[in-house]
Design a protein around this nucleic acid. Structure first.
Lengths: 373, 373
DNA sequence: TGCCTGGCGACAATCGGTTGCAGCGGTGCC
DNA sequence: GGCACCGCTGCAACCGATTGTCGCCAGGCA
């Protein structure tokens, strides 16, 4: 990291001309921003005991206090811009109104929309996500979970994709509310919201078959990622449904769902001594991009020589060269629904275990075409 | 949002074959995860008063207690897997170890790397970012700030881009630690880390001039965004430096830095009755993409007919058609540095005001070429 | 021997809320 | 007229840490 300049000081024009910084006339704003009023002060102003003020301020317990008194307290609170200190509240109630949110990597284009959905929905309910990146590393995941628990999060939302027995199961066993995103666990013990991977792959395969492809390859993600396994299984199933026997030589399993792995797998596929496929179903869009690179290197054109279909319809999938045919997943909604499930679970810890599957759809662009010849 | 299936229950295979879920042998792990030990328990186990235990556990105050006693306390803490309740601690210390992080929109590809940098650096210091999206809406920003303050964040990191007198100045005036990201404020009263926008635009213009372009257009962002203003100014300056008088007809200012605005501006530019430019400097990569669309529509080829250069080098900029020539900004480092500045400020509230400028670099790809003819 | 000093650790107040419990006055019923 | 009950509110005990203050005890010195 190089820094070009580094200016010290900067207060020579101190006083900075406080030109009517009164915001855009929200009125209460100034009051709200000055902050740090305490319950005791509100109580004194309203002429009641802090306990009473607390009840009046709390929607749940407001019925316990006289309407008149309540109004007085509310007024007092408003005039001094009171807002309850969640730290103090949390100490007593043992709830932080905070949700541990585990994702592999925020930088993966798949997750920002999911997280945004989570944030938006949680915000409505006055909860705040605490986001941790695990980089798909079980060790980091464990550390993050511990850190988050130390912060007393009220529950977990996990978009981290490992499918083997893990910390989250353990957590749920301890009574911690957990909702899985983008994956399910074998046995289905944990609530989840995920895309219907098998259905998505069916769409992809059906599309290729309809175009006339017979030799269709699948570059799969690792089976340790539940999406990797589900898409793999979906592929085999879909091929059979189409009356094609999947060729083991055309199914390669990678160690991750990244461009680099896509490149590696695709190269391996084309270097094999079997005849190359006319179409590739990639585990996701990133893997598909890896295919683009290798095809390019080998002088093969997409889609004329080889068709490619991705998975996720991540941002900019329509802008690649060629625009990528892929399976669209409603990522934002996935985040929203997961947040809702968790909220439900927080409200009622005995809520039934549910698994929501989001319907995928096929987006046909320019990376698929009938096979040559 | 449509749900395809919705399976209730799911525990038919209950018992889920607890196959050695002992993690990967971290040892302490299990202890750490069971959690919820309190200071009082540690103290009892170590045979000391909770107050003493507190001092022993705290590196700052450990010297106040006998080495022997301290060791006993530490051991006790370790064996019952104690981890301090930050809520309780925060109540007394009035610090939440939490940082309000304002960004316009997580979904904008510019921000994930910045946020990741923030998270990583803050995590090392045991701070946690609380992320809020403002959508560049002052109203939303105010609400977010209030919510964050209600949660008693210890400081703010703001990558939200407005340049007019705003809440953050107000906040800083109240003594709240604030560090700006990706922008500076007029007067420079607030600490900041930002790319050197002017230098970046200079790079872009110089590159085009070197290729032989004379009629260079700029599609600018709104002046209310500090990056918009800085790049605009940089453009005018760079043109003059190159001995070219910037043509007002070729400088258009948009209302946002998005693909849609890029399209609008580019269309307007080409529809004007002045001769079209041979090159366009876009306010950022998204605006450049908007240009791609319009050029495409008009049957103009990039770069043969019109060169385009973006700004940011956001993810996938190398994969567009054509691969985009752009100015690279070290986004991740920007997040890291901002976090560091804030940490410094938290440690020493009297730390000098600093403005760090990150050095941009030119990335030449396929969207620029010498002008035709 | 007596006093002072200093190291160490116990005590208790406190942070800012929430909540079980009890007390208060008034009303209705027997 | 007495009692039970009810609606409301005050009281005080928490929640789990931190921290100012004070007392205890040992050791050093006169």
């Amino acid at each position: 990291m190089r820094l070009r300049r580094d200016i010290e000081g900067g207060g020579k024009e101190a006083g900075v001309a406080r030109t009517t910084t009164d915001g855009d006339g929200t009125g209460i704003a100034m009051g709200g921003s000055t902050a740090n009023a305490t319950l005791k002060e509100v109580a004194r102003l309203a002429g009641v005991h802090p306990g009473t003020a607390s009840r009046a301020l709390n929607a749940e317990t407001r019925e316990l206090v006289n309407d008149d008194t309540a109004r007085r307290v509310l007024d007092a609170a408003r005039t001094i811009g009171y807002s309850a200190n969640p730290i103090a509240r949390g100490l007593k109630t043992n709830r932080s109104h905070t949700i541990g949110t585990l994702i592999p990597d925020l930088t993966n284009p798949l997750f920002p929309p999911v997280v945004r959905g989570i944030q938006d929905r949680l915000e409505e309910a006055a909860y705040t996500p605490l986001i941790a990146n695990t980089d798909n590393d079980p060790e980091r995941e464990r550390i993050s979970v511990d850190a988050l628990r130390a912060r007393r999060v009220d529950g977990f939302l996990a978009a981290t994709a490992r499918s083997d027995g893990d910390i989250l199961t353990e957590l749920a066993g301890l009574g911690v509310p957990v909702v899985l995103i983008n994956r399910q666990l074998r046995g289905g013990a944990l609530r989840s919201v995920a895309p219907d991977d098998r259905a998505g792959i069916h769409l992809a395969v059906a599309h290729l078959v309809e175009l006339g492809h017979l030799r269709i390859a699948h570059l799969a993600g690792p089976r340790s990622l539940s999406t990797g396994a589900a898409r793999y299984d979906g592929f085999v199933e879909a091929m059979r449904d189409a009356g094609l026997e999947p060729d083991p030589d055309l199914i390669l399993v990678g160690n991750a769902m990244t461009e680099a792995e896509g490149r590696r797998l695709c190269a391996e596929l084309l270097d094999g001594d079997v005849a190359p496929p006319t179409a590739i179903v990639a585990a996701n869009d990133l893997v598909a991009l890896g295919c683009y690179d290798v095809l390019d290197e080998r002088g093969l054109r997409c889609p004329q020589d080889v068709s490619v279909v991705g998975f996720n319809d991540m941002r900019f999938a329509d802008r690649f060269e060629p625009p990528l045919t892929t399976i669209r997943i409603p990522h934002y909604e996935m985040g929203v629904r997961a947040a809702e499930l968790l909220l439900e679970l927080l409200r009622d810890p005995a809520a039934p275990v549910r698994h929501e599957l989001l319907e995928p759809s096929l987006v046909v662009r320019k990376s698929t075409a009938p096979p040559a010849g």
